[in-house]
Write a protein that binds this DNA or RNA. Structure first.
Length: 859
RNA sequence: GCGAGAGUGGCGGAAUUGGCAGACGCACUGGACUUAGGAUCCAGCGGGCAACCGUAAGGGUUCAAAUCCCUUCUCUCGCACCA
């Protein structure tokens, strides 16, 4: 019988669905395991990255299930977002329709891959029953001061009448219409993630199951720095300019002051002075400068003297104050003390404006001369020109200067963070409405709980020029104030879609949307936290940080009982493929470039770099194509075999062939033996085996051991698969026993059954089929994971390597329980060793148990 | 610039705690079967005639280094004028 994946795959998928094989419920008797993969955005079709991500997750879910865990393995849709709205504008299809059609199609595709989801828990975040509770949590957050409205500057396109994300600004122009982007000050909603900043940071060191690099990225993103706030008194007026610095060791070298151009202080200082007009112009110019450009290293440093001075608090020196384009308004106090000798930016600025340089740190190996410096000295050294601190090492003087500033009342220790509050307002339609009402009399008033959800209206008009369709819909906007009953206007901003993805894993735990308040604490206590989370590295900061924050917020509301949502995180690599180009026709899809020729013009195809699969580079493999030509099982096993999960996977069509060939190879030998082994029970307990059969049985048990640890401890599916390949090769290597050689057939049956069970999480359809062919009646998904017998797995003889001075010189086979002294003696008596050591003096002999003997000789 | 990670045959990758480098697969070569083979099975496959040499390059620690340490180079990712 031939291996026909299409036939058997659809058969088993139907059966799993009918029998609800993967439906789960809370069961206090069983140990739970919550396996979660990042849910997809319903963009239209699943791509190979989804296949990889969900295959990895599926293997772990099925493996844990066979290990006896009560496994929660859900899926859903991150269904709000811009592409749906763009489709509405371009193709005149309602975002809701577009999204639901995509979900329907992708759902079919996922089912066709055979993933073991509990589909009863499926969630789509665009449903009012989902975002209803998010709106309630928003109101709770508002009441606690965790969500607030603030004026803040954003990228704005006047033609499209909308805010643009940083990513939507291309070279200072709007990505859609090409209009110059301006900064606009708008009232925006924020989540106060900074209220949890210390806890978020602290837990970075308490999540050992997360990859170090993700944690490092999060820590850097939070960006905690210890330093001092220092007061620089104004000259000729009251008050002082406050500055944040981490380099108080250079304070004596501060010779001028820089203020961010946007800082209100700038106009304040300039007002009434002759420079006022110029300053105003300068500020306007800087505000217009593109944010991306402005933060580029190569951007010209510009500044303007404000005709004002302040005083260095330690030296008393008068310092001119400048407005500068490169000072960040929203970090620290928006003002920086400039130390041109020890900061490159300040150095460049000082040279440009001919400002004084004072060296305050001298390197140990040479002497700096301020006159001759060509760049700032930023390394370690000893303080000079620094009063009582002279002679101290700059790295050690930080505390002393901080103490001094505090005792003199001229400054104080502070901590600064890079992380800003999370701006969640979007002037977009396809998102969860922010449940707030603006009343002229009462101000901002939350919608009453019993009036939730604020449902997104369907009958909106999408304007090709952009802008929020909600604001243009009077029946949505016009309402009454919940407080005073007077006329009021609804908030028309919607929430950032990252809000939905910050708690969808909670929703999966309790699919009943009608429980109040939204989530069932008992179910959450059983399932949460997520034991294993799997997804792309691209979410290392945003989604993972937001979800951690939101979990802490819900915890403080008593909704959930965990501090952190995800115990273990696996970040899988990207799927890449080489690009193919035709000189005339540009990038070609793989099917347009078969046999190395462009299918449009016949020219030779140019093979380009290996890049992440993307539509624009056309280096994509359609999962449907794989399913049709090879079946889901081949697609699954290839994704796992080609690379370990955390690394990028380079696509290889020949590799897919190889995987398909392996499945056929297993199928064939299984089919070949089927009739003979069907009747043979496994009863090898009291049978003494010899030779080939003994070796095969040993291999079987060794393979079980290896595959188990590879999956359990490391998620190294590629080596697990290669171990099974070795087992299958070993079965092929055994001489075909006759139909009446029952013991031999029993050994082979055991090996084949082991191969089937070990592969069951990886290629579930084929293994279900083979399992059934053997006469079993239960689903292979419900069979217990095989156990190995250490006695059978252990080798009776071991190969000991004999080295001379660490170089391989001979090998010997000895019984496993051989005495160490005997092994050493045997090694020295070995024919090759004797020949090589006869003229040398043996210094010592090292025996590494079960591995090698190293003979150290002196020549 | 700062931070993190990586660099092993023609290719993807193994080597789990410092202990036989190159498992497994792909590609390639040869053989068998065959009217035929792009199917299948079997064998070979880092370099070198060899002694030997080989894990980006150089140095070090060690009886022993792909693995640990130092220097350099290259690549990937993240942050990036954060004071």
């Amino acid at each position: 019988m031939k291996y026909e994946p299409q036939k058997i795959e659809e058969k088993w998928q139907k059966k799993w669905e009918e029998e609800q094989t993967f439906k789960v419920n809370e069961d206090p008797q069983k140990k739970k395991y919550y396996l979660l993969e990042m849910f997809p955005y319903p963009s239209g079709k699943i791509h190979i990255g989804h296949v990889r991500n969900y295959t990895i997750g599926d293997v772990v879910a099925r493996y844990k299930r066979m290990k006896g865990f009560n496994v929660l393995h859900p899926i859903g849709w991150d269904a709000f977002g811009m592409p749906a709205e763009n489709a509405a504008i371009e193709h005149k299809i309602h975002p809701s329709k577009w999204t639901h059609e995509n979900i329907d199609h992708m759902k079919k595709q996922l089912k066709r891959m055979g993933f073991s989801y509990d589909w009863d828990r499926e969630v789509a975040t665009c449903e009012p029953e989902y975002y209803r509770w998010e709106q309630l949590f928003f109101i709770w957050m508002y009441e606690k001061g965790l969500s607030y409205k603030k004026r803040s500057s954003v990228n704005f396109c006047t033609k499209c009448d909308t805010v643009l994300a940083n990513e939507q600004v291309e070279g200072g122009l709007c990505w859609r219409c090409g209009t110059e982007v301006t900064e606009k000050v708008l009232d925006q909603w924020f989540f106060k993630i900074t209220a949890y900043i210390e806890e978020l940071l602290e837990y970075c060191d308490r999540l050992p199951g997360w990859p170090e690099r993700v944690m490092t990225m999060q820590k850097n993103w939070i960006g905690k720095s210890y330093g001092c706030e220092v007061d620089f008194p104004m000259v000729g007026s009251e008050g002082a300019i406050k500055v944040f610095t981490t380099r108080q060791d250079t304070l004596f070298g501060a010779t001028f002051m820089l203020v961010a151009a946007e800082h209100p202080l700038v106009m304040q200082l300039a007002s009434g002075k002759p420079c006022e007009k110029d300053v105003r112009q300068f500020v306007e110019k800087v505000k217009k400068q593109d944010k991306l450009m402005r933060t580029s290293e190569y951007y010209e440093k510009e500044g303007l003297f404000l005709d004002s001075y302040c005083k260095n608090p330690l030296t008393g020196r008068e310092m001119p104050i400048f407005a500068a384009n490169f000072v960040l308004a929203d970090y620290g106090t928006g003002c920086v003390m400039a130390v041109p000798t020890h900061d490159q930016r300040d150095f460049e600025f000082a040279k440009k404006f001919n400002l004084p340089l004072i060296v305050v740190i001298q390197p140990k190996d040479r002497e700096l001369d301020a006159e001759k410096m060509t760049e700032a000295y930023v390394d370690e050294g000893v303080l000079v020109n620094s009063g009582q601190f002279n002679g101290m090492e700059n790295t050690k003087v930080l505390e002393a200067i901080a103490d001094f500033l505090e005792s003199e009342g001229k400054g104080r220790r502070t901590i600064q963070y890079r992380l800003r509050d999370w701006g969640i307002s979007r002037q977009r339609y396809w998102g969860a409405p922010i449940p707030m009402i603006n009343c002229d009399k009462c101000g901002i008033v939350p919608v009453k709980e019993e009036d939730l959800p604020v449902v997104l209206p369907e009958n909106v008009v999408f304007r090709p020029e952009g802008g929020s369709p909600l604001a243009a819909l009077p029946e949505f906007v016009e309402t009454t104030c919940p407080n005073c009953g007077g006329p009021a206007a609804r908030e028309t901003d919607t929430m950032d879609t990252f809000v939905e993805s910050s708690w969808y894993f909670d929703r999966y735990c309790c699919p009943d949307h009608d429980v109040k308040p939204g989530l069932d604490r008992k179910a959450l206590d059983y399932w949460m936290p997520v034991d294993q989370y799997i997804g792309g590295i691209e979410h290392a900061i945003l989604h993972l940080l937001y979800a951690r924050f939101y979990t802490k917020v819900l915890r403080d509301f008593g909704v959930i009982g965990v501090d952190e949502p995800f115990t273990n995180l696996l970040t899988q690599g990207m799927v890449c493929k080489e690009t193919m180009k035709c000189k005339e026709h540009g990038y070609l899809f793989p099917e347009q470039a078969a046999d190395g020729k462009c299918h449009i013009c016949g020219q030779d195809v140019i093979i380009g770099k290996t890049e992440k699969m993307s539509k624009s580079l056309k280096n994509v493999i359609d999962p449907d194509y794989l399913v049709q030509n090879y079946g889901a099982d081949t697609a699954r096993i290839f994704c796992l075999f080609a690379a370990p999960p955390e690394k990028d996977l380079e696509w290889s069509n020949q590799g897919v062939d190889g995987s398909f060939r392996f499945l056929n190879r297993l199928w064939r030998i299984f089919d070949d033996y089927l009739e003979d082994i069907k009747a043979v029970p496994i009863a090898l307990e009291n049978v003494a085996l010899e030779g080939d059969l003994k070796a095969l049985r040993r291999k079987t048990h060794q393979t079980i051991r290896k595959v188990t640890t590879d999956i359990e401890d490391r998620f190294h599916f590629n080596t697990a698969i290669s171990a099974v390949m070795e087992l299958v090769n070993a079965i092929y290597a055994v001489k075909r026993p006759a139909a009446d050689e029952k013991i031999a057939l029993a050994v082979i049956r055991e090996a084949l059954e082991a191969a089937v069970l070990l592969l069951a999480p990886i290629v579930p359809h084929m293994t279900e089929e083979l399992w059934q062919m053997l006469g079993h009646e239960t689903s292979v998904a419900d069979v217990a994971w095989p156990e190995f017998d250490p006695a059978i797995a252990s080798e009776e003889a071991m190969t000991i390597v004999v080295q001379i001075n660490g170089k391989l010189r001979s090998r010997m086979t000895v019984p496993v329980d051989e005495d160490a002294e005997k092994i050493k003696a045997d090694a020295l008596a070995d024919e090759k060793i004797v020949a090589l050591t006869k003229d040398a003096r043996i210094v010592k002999v090292i025996y590494v148990p079960k591995k090698l003997v190293n003979i150290v000789v002196a020549s």
